[in-house]
Design a binder for these strands. Structure first.
Lengths: 188, 188
DNA sequence: GTCTATACTGAGATAGAC
DNA sequence: GTCTATCTCAGTATAGAC
């Protein structure tokens, strides 16, 4: 049995995805995942803080890439256009990982406990984007409001893309943000 | 020992709030809550699906009131203005319960597990508002996008109100939605 | 790597409420 | 006497402590 840490981590993820697909998330004990991966239960918790966490591995990378992209947007760009530009930058991350992320997304969609965690991850992204906007000189209140609105719109765009991949994620993004602008323009 | 269900439920909530305030949410076992309320642990779970659920009792009432308020908005009102109007209708619910909800809100703010649940409750509201908008003839995609953007803005307004009660919640609401309109107007 | 606290679940028995 | 809230008991799973 190899003792390579990353190897075990990947085996755990693979085993978990299979078992979750077969019998559902709640019906799959950590013990079963560890067994199929050929490690002990304790090892599982060395790699993942908890059972839900397995499904959100790419989140850190996405966050880093978003923050970096946002910092790279030309000075003077207003918050919402800057956020939209940053989201466009991360599209390749989604397109390249689609075959891997799609089964996970479907599982999340039908598992309440995972939806909760997904929303929590989204909230982390909002925090990171808020901070990144403040680094661009946006005041704290505006930064939070924009980051939240943009994040929600981004999430809608990616969901639509999962449902309808015949349209590119780029187009879904532009379309969703356009709808947001039109809808809010009716205010006041 | 009396067997009145509602009475026990209230005692459980009271006991929980006290204990959470004293020692924190994670450090308070359900057993301790049940003991202080004078019932067994199993009874706790008859009244609440899980430990987190205690803190979100008013959510159902808020949801019902929002849906009702949205249905009462004059026909022809566009989605975002209709949502804003509905939120204004629920302001009394917040103002009257403030002394009760504020300690809970502070606890939620400093307890990650409760923040997750709070976001999940918010997602339920988004669903309900989306459906209510569809009942008003708004198409499904627009309804979801508007409900989500409005809900997030509403949440920001209530948070600002918690931080700064010298301004009315009505004013915080108008201010936040105005900021949303101005920020998104910079798109495209 | 082992042990333990704690969250939650299920089934059947019991005892106030009406 | 029925009904249903509560209790007793026995158990599984997660996660954290040692």
């Amino acid at each position: 049995m190899p003792r390579n840490g990353d190897e075990a981590r990947r085996r755990l993820q693979q085993a978990a995805l299979e078992l979750f697909a077969e019998q559902g998330f709640d019906q799959t004990p950590v013990e079963a995942i560890a067994a199929r991966a050929g490690v002990t239960e304790r090892t599982f918790y060395r790699h993942f803080a908890d059972k839900r966490e397995m499904l959100f591995d790419g989140e850190g990378e996405l966050r880093d890439q978003l923050v970096q992209a946002l910092a790279a947007v030309p000075d003077g760009t207003k918050p919402m256009p800057a956020l939209l530009a940053a989201f466009h930058q991360t599209v390749p991350l989604f397109e390249s990982n689609r075959p891997f992320t799609e089964p996970g997304a479907r599982l999340i969609a039908r598992t309440p406990a995972l939806q909760e965690r997904s929303l929590a991850k989204q909230a982390l992204l909002v925090r990171a984007l808020t901070a990144a906007l403040q680094d661009r000189g946006v005041n704290a209140r505006t930064a939070l409001l924009c980051a939240q609105a943009a994040m929600g719109t981004f999430a809608i765009a990616t969901h639509r893309w999962m449902d309808d991949p015949s349209v590119t994620l780029h187009n879904h993004l532009d379309q969703a943000f356009r709808e947001l602008r039109l809808a809010t323009a009716a205010l006041k």
